[in-house]
Amino acid sequence: MIQCDNLTKRFGDFTAVDHVSFSVQKRSIFGFLGPNGSGKSTVIRMLCGILEPSDGVGRIAGHDVSGETDAIKGKLGYMSQKFSLYDELTVNENLLFYARLYGIHGEAMKTRRDELIALAHLGPYVDRRAALLSGGWKQRLAMACALVHKPSVLFLDEPTAGIDPVARRELWDLLFELSSTGMTLFVTTHYMDEAERCSHVGYIYMSKLIVCGAPHELKKLPAVNPPGTRRLEVACDHVTLGLRATRPLGGVRAATVFGQSMHLLVEETLPEESIRETLLAVGIHKVEIRTIAPSLEDVFVALTAQYAGAP
């Protein structure tokens, strides 16, 4: 459904997107991850046909995004990073505006509006000005507006940035609902738990796409699981102190803090006992160790480290 072939964008000397290639299957939820300024939004803008690529080709349903902009406009919906709503307009008026913008008038317009209000559960707020909605509701309205013309691909640029956890979960429920109707979703996010819910993820770092694939495939990558190593979760008090103590230990390849525990990538030959002893030496008594599978975050941390270390 979406295809990028060496998609590149340069702003002067700065290359914001550097030969990015990937494809997204119809009906999938594609999670696009990467730190701020890594080029996520730039890729979306190019795919939506509002930013001219410097090099490479992007295609939506087979149409070139830079040459056939008119052909793709009816197919894609775009929800930008800011809430692109008209504050002075009510929920109802925002929906009617977007409907008219896409050439839907008269009865069809009202029917579509009612459908969207039902879909996004906007019923209680129909006559409220967009400016007075909370973040989560603004986001739902923005999404409803982006869906007004029944696009087959929906781009969402950080849809859950700055909204509360409940609203975040509800928004994802909505995304799954849309996906089940056959829509292709392209979502950028910072949240790893959201990434885990995607059918496919791509990770962009320093303008380059480092990895792309289904989460369970990525977790099996050799770069993430070097042969002869295993991943341990070490739950203990004073995690930062423990981290400092275990890092120099022979056989520990990487150590990161995850909440109240550490994730260690250790050589299989390293016995759990030596970790316990090291921690005891710095005064940490209560220690629980268990073997774990890598999380997506482990995947990205490992790949970023590998990429940064590569010449």
Binding site: R45, C48, I50, D70, Y78, S84, Y86, L101, Y102, A146
Partner: peptide, 13 residues
């Protein structure tokens, strides 16, 4: 400035 122009660009307007 508000970013609404971007959405207009994406539309067939």
């Amino acid at each position: 400035e508000r970013g609404t122009l971007e959405n207009l660009f994406v539309s067939p307007m």
